[in-house]
Write a protein that binds this DNA or RNA. Structure first.
Length: 500
RNA sequence: UCCCCGAUAGCUCAACGGUAGAGCGGCCGGCUGUUAACCGGUAGGUUGUAGGUUCGAAUCCUACUCGGGGAGCCA
């Protein structure tokens, strides 16, 4: 009987066949341990040398990493082992051989791993992240489908769209330049006038020359848009939506999140109501004593940690060179040293940047946009996600609704994830007034002729409406507690990188 | 576009102006409970590219290429 590793708990004592790949192998003369993965989990399979296993014992102990194999044997519960079960092997079939698999169990550099991304996501950590991604994507669709939103697919080839053509990829479209879409927003605005509540979900493209842990050139975004909605309605949906995502991932992916080392208590704190600040209030916080104090504390604790690490590094280096040390101890020390040095590098960059961040925050212009470091400060001061609303008109897109009581501000909202993960949602109420919209288009130096269809939406039954966009990869990085966004997508596309 | 760091065996790294090395991975052998197993043996190199300094360059200098991190910009 063919079984999945994740279902072995219901097959204890039975003979089953696993169809999978050899994740790792250890052997010791007359016994071989095959750690098998089948896409649903990992299970150690034990081959003892005996009459029964004679025909395949030799080939079993020579199997290369990632050989495709069918393993038959009896399931035994063993809480010590990965997954809680072990199989005593009675039959083995090699389906596809594998020799010299490049990704070994020793450390590799990220350049190498991402050149081998097609193999890299077979490994446990990457597998866990992409399992959470699948849940996240499913919940995104599920949430909007359950709540009366209609899926509308928006085009990927876009004519010169609203917000600065420098950040778009150009494509030759039968001799004419078109752009890869960086948002479906203008199109879902049209669609919400037909369907009431809609969303689009697909890849978007940004040609920004950014090489940071927060950037991809191709990433996925979901963009709900709601007719007869004002800013507070948009915020209420965003809040409910985020809670629903967090709950679902906590329900379905606890083992994966634990394996990734995520502090689940932090996710469990993601409950309504989220914090709400206006941009002006955020400015006050940034310029106030709390922000400064936090950053100065950071500086002190990080500097102290740097000294501590330097000491540890010196100790371990000495130990590594000392005599009579076992090879495995040496390996362990080398790995610890590498980890410490990486932490040290990160800390040194932080420490170098903090004084700059203090200055930026203290001199924050309340008529300017929030910078990356400002977002980090705001989000670090709060355990729950924080909505920041009513940004200055000048630093936001032309289509955002001008605030009725303060025309220098717009009815927009950004959602900052906790723990310094930054902006995961950007949204707004849209300007539904034709004249105001036209004057904003002129103000931004855009050509109204490019937006005729969009202006039609204000001519034929315009209503207050709004929506937001959520970046899947940044959200996933936050949910999984990852340092770098490139791990959140199967095949990352980054500046200068598009292989494999 | 700017700033910092890096490139040595398949992989991770050492060698710091004087004979290119270790561990892992590969291959051969040994070991019946391993958890990055262990032990012995073995193969494996145009030190990113081009120039320069020097009796001598992986090592110093210059340029370039590629990569990492950050700033700006952004989800």
């Amino acid at each position: 009987m063919i079984a999945l590793i994740k279902d072995l708990h219901s097959h204890v004592g039975q003979a089953v066949t696993l169809q999978g790949w050899l994740y790792h192998r250890r052997d010791s003369g007359k016994i071989a341990f095959l750690l098998v993965r089948d896409g649903s989990g990992l299970c150690q399979c034990v081959v003892s040398k005996s009459e029964q296993t004679e025909s395949f014992f030799e080939s079993a102990r020579r199997l290369g990493q990632e050989s495709a194999i069918r393993v038959t044997g009896t399931v035994r519960a063993d809480p010590k082992q990965v997954g809680g079960h072990e199989i005593d092997v009675s039959g083995l079939e090699v389906v596809g051989a594998s020799e010299n698999y490049p990704i070994t169990n020793k450390p590799h550099g990220i350049d190498f791993l991402f050149k081998n991304r097609h193999l890299h996501f077979r490994s446990r950590r990457q597998w866990a992240i992409l399992k959470v991604r699948a849940t996240l994507v499913d919940e995104i669709r599920g949430y909007f489908n359950r709540n009366g939103f209609t899926l509308i697919d928006t085009p990927i080839f876009a004519p010169a769209a609203g917000e600065g053509a420098q950040t778009l990829f150009t494509v030759d479209y039968f001799g004419e330049p078109v752009y890869l879409a960086q948002t479906g927003q203008l199109y879902v605005e049209a669609a919400c006038m037909a369907f009431g509540k809609v969303y689009c979900f697909g890849p978007t493209f940004r040609a920004e020359k950014s090489k940071t842990r927060r950037h991809l050139t191709e990433f996925w975004m979901v963009e709900p848009e709601i007719a007869y909605a004002e800013l507070d309605d948009v915020i209420a949906v965003a809040e409910d939506f985020i809670c629903s995502i967090v709950q679902r991932v906590l329900k379905d992916n606890r083992p994966e999140l634990e394996f990734l080392g995520r502090d689940l208590s932090k996710l469990e704190k993601i409950q309504k109501p989220f914090n709400r600040l206006t941009h002006k209030e955020a400015a006050d916080i940034l310029r106030g004593p709390r922000a400064k104090e936090m950053l100065e504390n950071d500086l002190a604790t990080k500097s102290a940690r740097i000294e501590e690490i330097k000491k540890l590094v010196a100790e371990k280096e000495a130990k590594e060179k000392s005599q009579g040390i076992k090879q495995w101890e040496k390996d362990k020390i080398v790995q610890e040293l590498a980890d410490l040095r990486e932490e040290l590098d990160d800390l040194q960059v932080d420490v170098q940047n903090i004084p700059h961040h203090i200055k930026l925050a203290a001199s924050f212009d309340e008529n300017g946009d929030l910078g990356g470091s400002d977002e980090t400060i705001i989000s670090r001061l709060h355990e729950r996600p924080t909505f920041v609303t009513h940004y200055p008109r000048g630093c936001k897109a032309f289509y955002m609704k001008q605030n009725a009581s303060d025309p220098t501000r717009v009815n927009n909202v950004d959602l900052l994830a906790p723990d310094g993960y930054g902006e995961i949602i950007g949204g707004s109420q849209r300007e539904e007034n034709l004249d105001v919209l036209l004057s904003r288009i002129h103000e931004e130096g855009l050509n109204p002729a490019d937006y005729e269809w969009y202006l039609d939406l204000r001519r034929y039954g315009t209503v207050p409406h709004g929506g937001f966009g959520l970046g899947v990869e940044r959200t996933l990085a936050w949910l999984c507690g990852l340092k770098h966004i490139r791990e959140t997508i199967p095949f990352p596309r980054m500046m200068g990188k598009f292989y494999p």
